[in-house]
Amino acid sequence: MTPPDPGPQTVLCGEVRTSVLRTSEALTARTATQLLNLRPDEHVLLSERPNLRVVSPHQLTGVDCRLPALTGGRPRAVGTVAVRAVLTEGRVLQTSAFARLVPGVGSHRKPWGHYLLRPGDIEPLARHQARDVVEGFLASAPLPGGVLNPGSIAERLLDEVLRHQLLDQRAPFKSGRTRLRWTALPAAEGAQASIERFTVAADGLRTVALRTPSADPSAVAALCEDLALHDWLLTTLLALVERSRLGSGDGEAVLAALRPLVDHLLHLWMPGARVPDALAGVWETLERRPGFSRQWQSLVQRIRDQVALRTVPLSRPVMARS
């Protein structure tokens, strides 16, 4: 039996960029709120439990472009994309751009004020298949110009914040940026939030396809920011451990390489800390497989063992020798 046509569906989509904050010391709550004070007349949101997380007010960017699509034509769509910056423990900076594609209404662009009254909504001007837009959006190739691209909007904000004069441009370790591109379709009636796909592509791109009961774009974006943060932590830790040539090389060099990880990264792991119950199922799935926390714990254990081994004072007589 074929399921009934769900009709036009709302699609949430967005992209999160994650980078280390280029500063030698992690920022305090106060400095962090100054850094993320993107709209001077609005509040910066700060939360200190269970860890320090500072969220900027939203900015909006107007778009009038094509929707990505894998098979069909690319319908034109008009509206605004919301973007915000999030700083975790004064150390990891994320920018997150997202929008809600509302089911098509009308075929002509309306006066701009119409869209301003619906911040973060994008209205297609032609019929489209939600599935097709999702697939087109998540296809890993770079999105062509003139096509909806929240990632480039997030990237602009990331560069802007990272150039802030509060930062001394000295990161404690070398690390790359990651991009997490996501979509969310409505979950079936009464169903929990679920994850349909999590892929890790080359060049730091991850794609996530969700089904969520909540159509609150901000809450779903926050879940994706949390996923992106932990994916970045794992990616960065793996790269740094590889570089430190753990288990070979000279002890001093290995210790010097591991030290910043202990100082700046190891305490940041807190998956799902702020994810609302309605969306928590997504983390549960990811913890079962691939098992983010398992991999993290085993890496952390390796680092701790190495640090402990290599800091045993050499002057102590080596008992094992006989």
Partner: peptide, 13 residues
């Protein structure tokens, strides 16, 4: 250009 240099410098030796 500044953004590019800053980004690459924080990623590469």
């Amino acid at each position: 250009c500044v953004n590019l240099f800053l980004q690459l410098e924080s990623e590469f030796d």
